[in-house]
Simulated assay, not measured.
Amino acid sequence: MLDKLQIVKQRYDEVSDLIIQPDIITDQKRYVKLNKEYKDLGQVVEKANEYESLLANIEEAKEIIADGSDAEMTEMAKMELEEANARIPQLEEEIKFMLIPKDPEDAKNVIVEIRAGTGGDEASIFAGDLYRMYTKYCASRGWKAEVEDLSEGTSGGFKEIIFSITGEDVYGDMKFESGVHRVQRVPQTETQGRVHTSAATVMVLPEAEEFDIDLKMSDIRIDYFCSSGPGGQSVNTTYSAVRLTHIPTGIVAQCQDQKSQHKNKDKAMKVLRTRIYEQELEKKLAEDAAKRNSLVSSGDRSAKIRTYNYPQGRVTEHRIGLTLYDLSNIINGDIQKIIEELKLTENTEKLKELGEVL
Rank of each mutant, 00 (worst) to 15 (best):
Arg194Leu: 12
Arg194Gln: 15
Val195Cys: 03
His196Cys: 14
Thr197Ile: 11
Thr197Phe: 14
Ser198Pro: 04
Ser198Trp: 10
Ala199His: 12
Val202Arg: 03
Met203Gln: 12
Met203Phe: 09
Val204His: 01
Val204Pro: 08
Leu205Lys: 09
Leu205Glu: 00
Pro206Ile: 02
Glu207Cys: 12
Glu207Gln: 15
Ala208Pro: 13
Ala208Met: 00
Glu209Phe: 04
Glu210Tyr: 06
Glu210His: 09
Phe211Pro: 05
Phe211Thr: 08
Asp212Ile: 05
Asp212Gln: 06
Ile213Ala: 00
Asp214Phe: 09
Asp214Val: 01
Leu215Tyr: 01
Lys216Ile: 02
Lys216Thr: 08
Lys216Ser: 15
Met217Cys: 04
Met217Phe: 01
Met217Lys: 14
Ser218Gly: 02
Ser218Glu: 13
Asp219Asn: 10
Ile220Gly: 01
Arg221Gly: 02
Arg221Phe: 03
Arg221Gln: 10
Ile222Thr: 15
Ile222Asp: 03
Tyr224Ala: 14
Phe225Glu: 10
Phe225Leu: 15
Cys226Lys: 14
Cys226Glu: 11
Cys226Trp: 07
Ser228Gly: 15
Gly229Leu: 10
Gly229Trp: 13
Gly229Cys: 10
Pro230Ala: 14
Gly231Tyr: 03
Gly231Lys: 05
Gly231Ala: 06
Gly231Leu: 03
Gly232Cys: 05
Ser234Gln: 14
Ser234Asn: 15
Ser234Ala: 09
Ser234Ile: 10
Ser234Gly: 02
Ser234Asp: 13
Ser234Trp: 13
Val235Trp: 03
Asn236Asp: 10
Asn236Val: 13
Asn236Cys: 09
Thr237Ile: 12
Thr237Ala: 06
Thr238Arg: 13
Thr238Cys: 09
Thr238Pro: 10
Thr238Asp: 02
Tyr239Ala: 06
Tyr239Asn: 12
Tyr239Arg: 13
Tyr239Thr: 05
Tyr239Cys: 12
Ser240Phe: 00
Ser240Pro: 06
Ala241Ile: 06
Val242Asn: 09
Arg243Phe: 08
Arg243Gly: 12
Leu244Met: 12
Thr245Lys: 06
His246Asp: 10
His246Asn: 00
Ile247Asp: 05
Ile247Gln: 05
Ile247Ala: 03
Gly250Gln: 01
Ile251His: 00
Ile251Val: 12
Ile251Asn: 02
Ile251Glu: 02
Ile251Thr: 04
Ala253His: 09
Gln254Ala: 11
Cys255Trp: 03
Gln256Gly: 15
Asp257Thr: 14
Gln258Met: 13
Gln258Ser: 15
Ser260Ala: 05
Ser260Thr: 08
Ser260Leu: 02
Ser260Lys: 05
His262Cys: 02
His262Gly: 06
His262Asp: 14
Lys263Ser: 05
Lys263Ile: 08
Asn264Ala: 04
Asn264Val: 03
Lys265Cys: 11
Asp266Tyr: 09
Lys267Leu: 11
Lys267Phe: 07
Ala268Val: 11
Met269Arg: 12
Met269Ala: 01
Lys270Leu: 11
Lys270Pro: 00
Lys270Cys: 08
Val271Phe: 00
Val271Gly: 06
Val271Asp: 06
Val271Pro: 02
Leu272Trp: 05
Arg273Ala: 07
Arg273Cys: 07
Arg275His: 14
Arg275Gly: 02
Ile276Gly: 07
Ile276Ala: 03
Tyr277Ile: 00
Tyr277Val: 01
Glu278Asp: 13
Glu278Leu: 10
Gln279Val: 06
Gln279His: 13
Gln279Arg: 14
Glu280Gln: 14
Glu280Asp: 13
Glu280Val: 02
